[in-house]
Design a protein around this nucleic acid. Structure first.
Length: 480
RNA sequence: GGCGGGUUGGCGGAGAGGUUACGCAGCGGAUUGCAAAUCCGUGAAGACCGGUUCGAUUCCGGUACCCGCCUCCA
């Protein structure tokens, strides 16, 4: 069996991965706060841990891996949106409006991540469905002296956990020295963090021993991983930005609540995303969502490929140039693999992935397989990376091509061939150029027959396309 | 200020203490009505300063620069 090696943030070393139970390898990944469309940065951990999930399934068997990724559906930004709808005259309760917002956001998230070829996790728990376990864990922490209730809040006492700061490499004293946090007067220590906080009438809340309130951000992951994976499990993943304070706090809560468990044994953090060399932010005007890219006609598979080009522990830069490169490569490979039956992925590709998810190295192997013409190995190996599947890219493109459109393009392609045959170069070239504006590329292949292919089928709307096509058909004397 | 990470050829981006990464672009050639695509070939690197070593881009130390987190923006 292949030995998977992973860089464990906890030890800062690359280690052999040895699961607690090979018959049930367990992984928890921090998922999105569902208040709006997922931006491109949100997709990075999804891609990284999707590859890890696929690799684990390959090595241990598809039925022997449990992947949990949560939805955070308690959040002030969600509240704000619900209150906005309420203010706009909606009659439903705030709770109903919150639910509405999170439901629609989750549906978007699923659609967008599906388009990137990400497998759905085995469990996608929502924080609001685990309030009970969170309250129970909080009570336990109070009982064991690791937390205290004050003024409707419950706070975790960081001084009660000696290893606090180990994951992110800081000590409580260092943090206080450089802290910019506003310290609530009721905190025993400035670094103490909230497990539970009171809710006003305008905020969602649940009854608890400390009054009506809602959970702090960190406790949900501790409670849900416990419920679904147990006190000890294998892998915990997320973005590097979550390492502190989120993951540090999760560890503190879980370790203190269940001192006999190990909590997560391997911690993986992916580096962040940049856009054209800069941090993606609304103020820089380079902020966009996955859906924005898909709507612009960038196939999900291309987005996925660009992510995979960079190792997960390096900052990844999204650039238009990379997208173009990915697209050209995928087009070339797709031509090679059409119709081949999947077999086993190449051992080299598996070894690259097993070596701390070296996706860039795996892609290099794919290039070699492609140039050697080994279509079966290429398709099978690409499939392990979630690439070149029938479910990707094709679907996106062909859904957008109506029968009418295809028929019209076919007639125009025949006209083009005829112009070429009669050496009417002017008309032939003009037609070729016009069609390229529609995202259709006419090509001459080796045998000097002609064919056509969709190059970028999504650049125009169906209406624009129809109008343009009928103009061309008239021009070619095709009055159908 | 505290903590962590990075710096590879024109661009992207890996591995390995000594042997070609790979891809894109470029250049040369094949093919071609033009173009695209495709195919063949090819030059080019390791921020800076020291140290370890027979030998370092790869290990160690320092400098410079960049980035992230510490402010519930992944």
């Amino acid at each position: 069996m292949v030995t998977i090696r992973l860089t464990n943030s906890k030890t800062r070393k690359k280690e052999d991965f040895v699961p607690l139970d090979p018959a049930n390898v367990r992984m928890y990944v921090c998922g999105p706060t569902v208040y709006d469309r997922a931006h491109l940065g949100n997709a990075r951990p999804v891609m990284v841990f999707d590859v890890l999930y696929r690799l684990l399934r390959h090595v241990y068997g598809a039925d022997h891996v449990t992947y949990v990724r949560n939805f955070t559906d308690v959040d002030d930004k969600i509240n704000a949106e619900a209150q906005r709808r309420k203010a706009a005259g909606r009659a439903e309760s705030l709770e109903a409006l919150i639910r509405e917002r999170t439901e629609e956001t989750i549906a978007w998230y699923h659609a967008d991540m599906d388009a990137l070829g990400a497998l759905r996790p085995d469990h996608e728990p929502r924080a609001t469905e685990y309030i009970g376990p969170m309250v129970a864990m909080t009570e336990g922490l109070i009982g064991s002296g690791h937390a205290y209730a004050v003024e409707g809040h419950v706070l975790f006492r960081v001084r009660s956990y000696a290893a606090y700061g180990a994951l992110s490499g800081r000590s409580v004293d260092d943090m206080i020295a450089g802290a910019r946090v506003e310290v609530a007067p009721f905190k025993e220590d400035p670094m103490d963090f909230v497990l539970w906080k009171p809710s006003s009438e305008e905020e969602p809340g649940w009854e608890s021993p400390w009054g009506r309130g809602r959970p702090g951000w960190h406790i949900e992951c501790s409670a849900m991983s416990l419920e679904l994976l147990g006190e000890s499990f294998d892998i915990h993943g997320g973005g590097l930005d979550l390492q502190f304070p989120h993951h540090e706090n999760e560890i503190a809560q879980s370790a203190c609540a269940h001192p006999h468990g190990t909590f997560a044994r391997y911690w993986l953090h992916n580096e962040m995303l940049q856009v054209e060399g800069k941090k993606m932010s609304k103020s820089l005007g380079n902020f966009f969502t996955v859906r924005d890219l898909l709507d612009q006609g960038v196939p999900g598979e291309v987005i996925r490929f660009v992510f995979l080009m960079t190792h997960y522990r390096k900052p990844m830069d999204w650039t238009a140039e990379k997208a173009a490169e990915a697209k050209a490569t995928l087009r070339k490979w797709r031509k090679l693999v059409t119709g081949v039956k999947l077999g086993q992925p190449s051992r080299e590709v598996v070894e690259c992935l097993a070596d701390d998810l070296n996706t860039a190295g795996a892609i290099a192997v794919l290039h070699r397989l492609a140039s050697s013409g080994d279509a079966v190995a290429l398709a099978s190996s690409a499939s392990l990376l979630g690439l070149l599947g029938n479910d990707l890219s094709r679907r996106q493109s062909e859904d957008n091509q109506s029968e009418v459109f295809r028929g019209a393009v076919n007639r125009l392609a025949r006209a083009w061939i005829e112009h070429r045959r009669t050496k009417d170069w002017a008309r032939a070239d003009r037609l070729r150029d016009e069609l390229s504006l529609l995202g259709v590329r006419l090509v001459v292949d080796k045998t000097n027959h002609s064919s056509w292919a969709f190059e970028n089928p999504d650049i125009l709307t169906e209406d624009e396309r129809r109008e343009k096509l009928s103009a061309l058909l008239r021009l070619e004397g095709d009055e159908e």
